[in-house]
């Protein structure tokens, strides 16, 4: 498996601000944020809905432009989106007109890899996410969990040095979410890329992360930088330990303390817009 050849990125943000919207509706979604992420770290960004954590992720992916401060990946400012920074959305973005294997192989096609090599590598990655045998299915024929596995495989085939995940398991049921979290840790154990994982689920953040950056409601600021020291590989047992409970209580306190009005969800592409209406 040549996914092991991935390099991993370091990220640093200083005085980073991001504004969204236009004219009178313009507001500051992320305010004066500072953090450093070391190469190979698994970071969770935890915060309430609408706090700007997805906005931050969108800026890392290159879909959104910072309005102030600096955001560096491996020492260079983020330009546009690119295959070195893979992005997984909450609702899958698989192309409905491509079957599973062609979706996964899309990144290779964009790099001009020939078809037989594309298919071979896509097969390997599908095996990694446990989806062998589903190559010829259309995305709409898969369950939510399987769709996210394909989405992850499609990003991993590009060997991203930074893996950006926007509540990727938020829409799955509890059982499936647990399975996907374990699968993600297993994959990450093998490829050791840097991961920035956005979630509002405290258990998920503690279970997955090396470090948790806790964000306040809008305008999003980082209010705590928590280390999570549980040994790896982690299994589901860890969530019942007193240390886990202690951390969880601490996070609850932070979020409760900062609780404000409920805000609409933001997306890594900015403010979600309504689907355009059909015209005839």
């Amino acid at each position: 498996m040549n996914a092991a050849a991935s390099t991993s990125s370091a990220v640093s943000a200083s005085n980073l601000s991001i504004h969204l919207g236009h004219g009178a509706d313009r507001f500051e979604a992320v305010q004066n944020v500072q953090f450093n992420i070391r190469s190979g770290e698994f970071i969770c960004i935890l915060g309430p809905s609408g706090c700007g954590k997805s906005t931050l992720l969108g800026a890392l992916a290159g879909h959104l432009q910072p309005s102030g401060g600096q955001l560096l990946v491996d020492g260079k400012p983020v330009g546009g989106p690119g295959p070195d920074r893979g992005m997984v959305f909450q609702q899958h973005t698989l192309f409905p007109w491509r079957n599973v294997i062609d979706n996964v192989a899309f990144g290779l096609k964009m790099r001009g890899v020939n078809r037989s090599q594309r298919l071979q590598q896509a097969h390997e990655i599908l095996q990694l996410v446990g989806l062998q045998g589903f190559e010829r299915r259309w995305p709409s024929q898969l369950s939510g969990g399987m769709q996210q596995r394909v989405e992850i495989a499609r990003v991993l085939i590009n060997h991203p040095s930074l893996l950006l995940m926007d509540e990727p398991f938020g829409a799955l049921d509890a059982q499936c979410r647990m399975e996907m979290q374990q699968l993600l840790l297993e994959i990450w154990g093998r490829i050791r890329t840097t991961v920035v994982f956005v979630t509002h689920d405290i258990d998920e953040a503690i279970f997955l992360a090396d470090r948790i950056l806790v964000m306040s409601p809008r305008p999003g600021r980082i209010i705590e930088d928590l280390r999570v020291d549980f040994a790896r590989p982690r299994d589901a047992e860890v969530v019942t330990t007193p240390e886990f409970m202690h951390l969880k209580r601490h996070c609850l306190e932070l979020l409760r303390h900062e609780q404000g009005r409920a805000l609409p969800r933001l997306s890594p592409l900015g403010i979600p817009t309504a689907e355009p209406q059909a015209i005839i």
Binding site: A61, G62, H63, G80, P81, G82, P83, R85, G86, M87, F89, Q91, T93, F95, F106, G107, M110, R111, R154, V155, N158, S267, P268, L269, T273, E275, P276, A278
Partner: peptide
């Protein structure tokens, strides 16, 4: 009417 997220995703995939 093409989903903007699909375009964003494709850009992120190169």
């Amino acid at each position: 009417a093409v989903d903007k997220r699909l375009v964003a995703s494709a850009r992120s995939l190169g």
